[in-house]
């Protein structure tokens, strides 16, 4: 997992999966990388092949974190399988998705 801050945007990329074993680390490391200046959190899921409910939970937690500080979370270029799980759970109606 890689993090990069440009201006007010923190981008998290290189995520292979968001599962029960990886989602807590993903959430905690992302939160740790958030600085006071960050208003946009971009989660790049272009390499992600697996997401389960734990992974979705971590995305929701980060979405809540960003909303609480007046910012926004965006899902960047999700793979078709990630889009499927987001749509199945209706999270595509809550999370902003940038294709």
């Amino acid at each position: 997992m890689k993090t990069n801050i440009q201006g007010t945007t923190l981008t998290v990329a290189g995520i292979a999966e968001l599962s029960a074993t990886s989602s807590t680390t993903f959430r905690d490391e992302t939160r740790a990388a958030l600085t006071a200046a960050v208003t946009t959190l971009d989660i790049d899921l272009s390499l992600t092949t697996f997401v389960d409910s734990s992974g979705l939970g971590s995305l929701i937690a980060l979405h809540k974190t960003m909303a609480g500080r007046g910012g926004a979370l965006r899902i960047i270029k999700p793979t078709p399988t990630v889009v499927q799980i987001l749509e199945l759970t209706r999270l595509h109606r809550i999370l902003e998705i940038v294709s």
């Binding site: 599962s19 697996f50 389960d52 409910s53 078709p80 399988t81 889009v83 499927q84 799980i85 749509e87 199945l88 759970t89 209706r90």
Partner: peptide, 30 residues
Amino acid sequence: MTEVRNSFAWGRQLLNLLNGSCIEISDRFL
């Protein structure tokens, strides 16, 4: 509260009929 559109859901398999993307859902409650 799930949403299944343009898909074929059979068992754990969820197939998007528009783009052919297919996944196995690991969460049984979904």
